[in-house]
Computed example of a mutant assay.
Amino acid sequence: MILSVVMVIYYNWLIFIITTLFSILVFLVPFLTTKKSHKKIEISNQTNDEFLQFSKDSVKSYWNYWSLNKTQKLKSDLMKISNNYEKANKINKNFQGLQVMLSTITIYLIQIILITLISYFLFKDIFTVAIVVTLSQVTTQYIQSFGIILNHFIKYLNLRKTNDEINDPYTKELENFTKTKVIEEKLESIVFKDFTFKYDQTTILDKINLKIVSGDKVLILGKSGVGKSTLLKQLFYPKSFDVKSEISINKARCENYDIRKQAVYIDQDIFLSKDTIWNNITLANPEISKEEVDFYLKFLQLDHLIDRLEFGLETIILDNMQNLSGGERQRFAILRGLVAKKPWMFLDEVNSALDKKTSNLIMNYLLNKKDLTIIMVAHHIEKEELNKFNKIIKL
Rank of each mutant, 00 (worst) to 15 (best):
F22W: 06
F22N: 01
I24F: 12
I24N: 03
V26T: 15
V26Y: 14
F27T: 07
V29A: 09
P30G: 14
L32M: 15
L32D: 08
T33H: 06
K36I: 07
S37C: 04
H38F: 06
H38P: 05
K39S: 08
K40F: 11
I41K: 00
E42G: 03
E42L: 02
E42W: 01
I43V: 04
S44L: 01
N45Y: 02
Q46I: 05
N48T: 03
N48V: 01
D49H: 03
D49R: 05
F51D: 00
F51N: 04
S55F: 04
K56Q: 15
K56P: 04
S58L: 02
S58Y: 05
S61C: 01
W63N: 11
N64P: 01
W66Y: 09
S67G: 14
S67E: 08
S67L: 07
L68K: 14
L68E: 12
N69V: 13
K70V: 07
T71V: 13
Q72H: 11
K73C: 01
K73N: 06
L74T: 03
L74C: 02
D77Q: 07
D77C: 01
L78W: 11
L78E: 05
K80F: 09
I81K: 07
I81V: 06
S82F: 15
N84G: 06
Y85Q: 03
E86T: 13
E86V: 15
E86L: 13
A88D: 08
A88Y: 00
A88L: 03
A88F: 01
N89S: 06
N89E: 09
N89Y: 05
N89R: 10
K90R: 04
N92S: 04
K93P: 01
N94D: 09
L98V: 05
L98P: 10
Q99Y: 07
V100T: 14
V100Y: 15
V100A: 15
M101E: 15
M101R: 13
L102P: 10
T104A: 14
I105Q: 14
Y108L: 09
Y108R: 10
